[in-house]
Structures are given as C-alpha cells and as structure tokens.
Amino acid sequence: MSACRALRRLGPRRRIALPAAFAALAAVALTACGSGTKTASGGDTKFVQGTGGVTVVSDRSERQAAPDLSGKTLEGKDLDVAKDYRGKIVVLNVWGSWCNPCRAEAKNLVTVANDYKDKGVQFVGLNTRDPAPAAAIAFEKEYGVPYPSLYDAEQKLVLRFPKGSLNPQAIPTTIFIDRDGKIAARALKALSEDELRRTLEPLVAEK
C-alpha cells in the first residue's frame, strides 16, 4: 500500500500533523506519490526514483547530512544515533503503534534488521504521536522488535530534518542513512522485505 493510500485510509486524527512550515512539503509528497512522480523537493538536489517507490540519492556527493537524532528511547535510555552508531548504515523507521501500515511492515523490518546486523547495519525506530510509551512498548514486544526506538511524541526529532532533504512526510517513513551520516534514501510507505534489501544492498556495497 502506498503512503498516500495509507494516509487516506487513516482518519484525520491518525494522520501526521505537521506545522505550517511543513504543510507545503507534505502536500508535495502526497501529490507526487499519487501521481507517480518523484517526491524530490528543493532546487539542486539530484534525487533519483528507485524501484518500489523508494527515493534514493545515488550520487554520494549530493546527499545531505542527517540531523541530530538523539534523546530518550521508549525505555528511557539515552540514545545518540550519530555517536552510538558511527560508521554504520542506519535504517530509521518513523512509526506509531496506532498506525496500521506500521503493523503491516513490522515483521519485515524485524527480519531484515536481524539479517543485516552483522553487515554494519543498525535499525532504529522513531516512535511518534504515541501519547505515552506503554502502547509503543507493547507493539515492540508483540512483533519482537530487536532494535531501540527514540520516543518523539511531539515530533521534535522529525522536524529536525532540513527542508529540501529526504525528510519524513508520512507515517510510516523509512530513511536510510549511509556510513557517513548522510541521507541516502527514503520511503514514504510500508516496505516489504525485498524493498528493504534492494535499498540496503547498494549501501552495504559502498566503500
């Protein structure tokens, strides 16, 4: 299911609420997703539409740095993605326990996270819009999620992504960060195992 269709099926209360500064970006993403065009926004950045609706930046020199992604996990532990996972490929999944597409892709994320943990790949969740951690923790237990999730109920971390970058514009969103800490790809939809692997393999192969 595409991100657009997923958001249409979710009621207004379940859609991601973006401040006015990001409303235009959200509109661009939804329009592009619905029309099949690229979701790129922002002048000179050379985004390339990959397979399965995943937008990638194949030219490493064109990638933008990921923002500071640090804070408390659902369990209340400190996590600094750039510091704790320096030199690793990071797969950042923006999700909520209330999100049906998030449930649909959870088992795929878990399987691929386990398969790639010895290949220098670290999965990290970014839980948003859950008013308290309890429901999100129960979600992780239900699906056997082996990686940590930053707790971002008010979407402060989500909004740290720079304008014009491959920033989160829907729930779920999955962002792929290369070993240099730069944003290499983004998916605005629930991902299958094959889509996750196809996006990861070129990044794993980079030297």
Rank of each mutant, 00 (worst) to 15 (best):
A65I: 10
S165Q: 04
I175N: 02
E62S: 13
G42F: 07
G71P: 14
R9K: 14
M1S: 08
A24Q: 09
R160P: 00
P131K: 13
K88Q: 11
E75A: 14
D115A: 15
S41I: 05
E206G: 01
L69A: 04
A184T: 04
K107A: 15
T128Y: 09
E195I: 00
D115N: 07
P162W: 03
S70L: 07
A3H: 10
T45P: 00
R63P: 00
L200M: 04
Q169S: 14
K119R: 13
L7A: 15
L126A: 03
E193C: 02
D118W: 01
L159I: 03
A21D: 12
F139R: 10
A3Y: 06
L200F: 03
G125F: 02
K46I: 11
Q64E: 05
K88C: 02
A21E: 15
F161C: 11
Y147C: 10
L196F: 06
A3V: 09
L74C: 02
A6E: 10
L188V: 07
V56T: 08
D78N: 14
A185H: 09
A17G: 12
P172R: 14
K38L: 11
R14E: 14
R198Q: 13
L30N: 12
P146T: 02
R160D: 08
E140F: 10
D68W: 06
P12F: 06
A3W: 05
V124G: 11
T199D: 02
A24F: 01
R15E: 09
Q122V: 03
G34H: 07
R160N: 14
E75V: 00
G96N: 09
L188C: 08
L159W: 05
K156C: 06
I175W: 00
A132V: 03
V81S: 00
V91L: 02
T51E: 15
L79R: 10
T39I: 06
D80P: 00
R198M: 07
E201K: 04
Q64N: 01
R160T: 09
R5V: 11
D84M: 00
R86L: 09
V28T: 14
A20D: 14
A134K: 12
S70W: 02
W95M: 07
L109Y: 07
F139A: 10
W98I: 05
S61T: 15
K189E: 13
K156A: 11
A134C: 03
L188A: 15
W95P: 05
R13A: 12
L18H: 09
S41A: 11
V94E: 05
A24W: 02
L18A: 06
A138K: 14
T173G: 11
